[in-house]
Design a protein around this nucleic acid. Structure first.
Lengths: 213, 213, 213, 213
DNA sequence: TATGAATGAGTGTTCATTCAT
DNA sequence: AATGAATGAACACTCATTCAT
């Protein structure tokens, strides 16, 4: 790994853990095994580094998403897979949601001009539309669902649960982070999405199958 | 308002805007029209102030929620009202979700020992259960829905959309904060929750009513 | 002395010795026996401190100048006294000319908006005019001499010699800073000014007196 | 121009503008279109470069001065020409006086051992003596004037005015840098020098000529 | 209850300089 | 002759916190 890459990696961790204001340039340099000045050489400023850490984090997420092969699946399976992938990615990469939160604390100002960010996110907007259309054609999905709202909803169900699990665990006096709780939540989210998207008939069939199992 | 109250008010704003690390004690004192030393006198430290700002913010939210009179409503109406209230509260009090995010960035460490926090949140856990049970009894709601998961889901659908509207607007190249977009989202969330909770029969009736209108 | 005064005193020395860019805030604080933060508390920035150091330095100079009692002297004596005072002040306060040089390196930008600076310098512009007029009335001074040019010239003769004595000593391979050299220069400057200002008749008389002595 | 020359040229500008401490090696390299390392290769250090920039600056001045052909002029004309040249050179090369000031801020330490500097300045010390002697022989100049003091005085009258024009303009609330003010100053300096040097008789004749014109 | 002065440790950033090629 | 990567020490400036009153 080049020095530059090591710095970005360290930065992703530090910013995710402590936010932009809480992160320390010194610590990032130390973690990256690099000199502090190199950070300024490559990224210009703490904000510049934050921008690039965000870009890198998003690129990783979108690359993993792109690696999903949904084509062989039927629409319900594809939706399911997307939901599961999103959930699992959030779980396995807690830094991602933390960084996204930090980006939004600053109203995404660090990504405003970023071509990289735009470019990395664009491909994923047509995918959901295709799945929905296929499902409608097969009579499995209800018509009239906005793919953007659906995508946001899939993200929301997992993201909110995980990012707010700490206050949530206190509010509900229940450990939202246990293995059991996590599994339950995934199942609940699956149900939420299917009931939202599927036609009553398709839903009935799905529930028959499940209760048979 | 007492000096102490003015400090907490200023702190809620400052912490919401900039996070714990980004907030400045000096600025809070200035905003509160108070002496810096007063902050230490009343709250001991920046973290102590952060804790109390969080407690106050949550108390406000729960008080507003408590003021909702759901009793005269049928279960669907009650659920609807709860959803709308949550959404509207988030919209009107953007500081709330920003502060909660900051609390979670620090893994809710500042609320761990807080009796106030526990006390303020407790009443609201039985409410959802009551609504669900009433709905089930009337044949309107499906059985087997975990009230905690439902409550989390209602929050998630609005919270995620609003807190991530900045990155979201860039990702989807669509202004998620416009009046139109906000109204659309609320409608979408209502649909999501009703399809999740209602029996197929109740749903069909609801949709009949709506298409008639 | 208050902390504030000690800081200004230390700053005058440090800036005079090393210029604005070469001066070190740390060292000024140390020299002043003060905390670094106090400098920012009182002066806002290094540039702010530089401005106030300049103002203080000029104020000292103008105060010393104001203390001169020229009224009992005849015009030649007054001019002489002014010349000698200027020279001696420069010699005894080498920081003054060094600081003025630094101010001019920055094109006096630090004094541009300074009311203090303006206020401190204003009284001294009418003094020279009065001396000249008195001398002309007595037939001792030539008419038509611009008091501003004269004042600048008096300053120039001493200032340039002293501020450039280091390169000058190398250029002329002669120690311009020795006691003897300094005395010679003052005498030379006196001669320069008198020949510039006095009428031939007054000059002749002066030279008679001197050669008699 | 060789890289080395481009570096020295850039350095003269940068040091003149910002002083030794304010100058930036990076900027000099950039301005020179050279690599930073080249500076260290050729000059060893920032101080080394400063020394050579000073030497080059002085050499340019002395070369221009050497190009003056004073021989055909009478002593008054020669003195006049020297005064005008000095003034004009300062005006056209503001970097010169700024650099000399910087050299003196550091007490000429950078030129202490410089053979180049010594060598470049030596020829000019006999010139003034020759002019004075010629003037005395012709009965135009007073005897007993130290040529070194005279040379310093000629420099002082222009140099001080120009280098301190920024504080001066504020002190006198008059723009010392306007075309008009500059012309006035040159005339005043000419007068100062002539009255200093010329015999009363020569002066009287000069003034007759002028008032006739 | 309130205040202004003071502080030590640190914060992002910059600098002249050197290394490896 | 020339370069890009790297560095350690320092830089102006800031912060949460405490002291003295």
């Amino acid at each position: 790994m080049t020095t530059r890459e090591r710095i970005v990696t360290a930065a992703r961790g530090e910013f995710a853990e402590l936010g932009l204001a809480g992160a320390r340039i010194d610590r990032i340099a130390l973690l990256a095994g690099a000199n502090k000045q190199m950070i300024y050489h490559y990224f210009g400023s703490k904000d510049g580094l934050f921008t690039q850490a965000l870009e890198a984090e998003y690129a990783r997420f979108r690359n993993a998403e792109a690696a999903l092969d949904l084509d062989p699946l039927d629409p319900v399976g594809a939706l399911d897979e997307l939901l599961a992938f999103t959930w699992t990615y959030y779980l396995d990469n807690p830094g991602f949601i933390r960084l996204v939160n930090s980006a939004n604390l600053h109203r995404a100002r660090h990504l405003q001009g970023s071509e990289t960010f735009r470019h990395v996110n664009r491909p994923f907007r047509s995918r959901m539309r295709a799945i929905l259309e296929k499902g409608i054609a097969l009579g499995m999905f209800r018509a009239g669902i906005d793919p953007v709202q659906l995508q946001i909803t899939i993200a929301a169900l997992g993201y909110y649960y995980l990012t707010n699990q700490f206050t949530g665990s206190l509010v509900f006096e229940r450990d939202l982070g246990s293995q059991r709780a996590l599994a339950d939540r995934l199942a609940f989210n699956r149900m939420t999405i299917l009931r939202l998207v599927c036609t009553p008939r398709a839903l009935a069939k799905l529930e028959q199958v499940r209760s048979a199992a």
